[in-house]
């Protein structure tokens, strides 16, 4: 019984590990590092824009400061979106 169970676990583990070599799925897809980095930066930028709005509305940031900051953040965000377009549409990043 023990032997049978040991063999079962052994075969199961080996099959699980070796499966990618046996059944090659080929195009695994997945994001490249460049895209992941830009995604992270985009998300951070969006969050920053919303945080700045929150800081303005809770009175921590003056309206003048917010205007300058918001314009800069939005320009940076659009730049990130364009770069993301380039990465997604263009050749895979290295």
């Amino acid at each position: 019984m023990q032997f049978f169970l040991v063999m079962l676990v052994l075969c199961g583990a080996t099959a699980l590990m070796a499966s990618p070599l046996i059944w090659r799925s080929g195009a695994a897809g997945g994001k490249g590092a460049e895209e992941a980095a830009l995604e992270a930066a985009k998300e951070a930028k969006f969050r920053e824009i919303r945080d700045a709005e929150h800081d303005l509305r809770t009175g921590k940031l003056s309206r003048e400061d917010h205007q300058v900051l918001d314009a800069a953040l939005r320009a940076e965000a659009i730049d990130l979106l364009r770069r993301l377009d380039a990465v997604r549409g263009g050749p895979a990043a290295t």
């Binding site: 700045a52 809770t58 940031l61 400061d65």
Partner: peptide, 16 residues
């Protein structure tokens, strides 16, 4: 939590 990111105005800080 009372401070704004990047820059807090003095008046804002005082109020908070």
């Amino acid at each position: 939590p009372l401070m704004a990111w990047r820059k807090t105005t003095l008046a804002g800080a005082r109020r908070s």
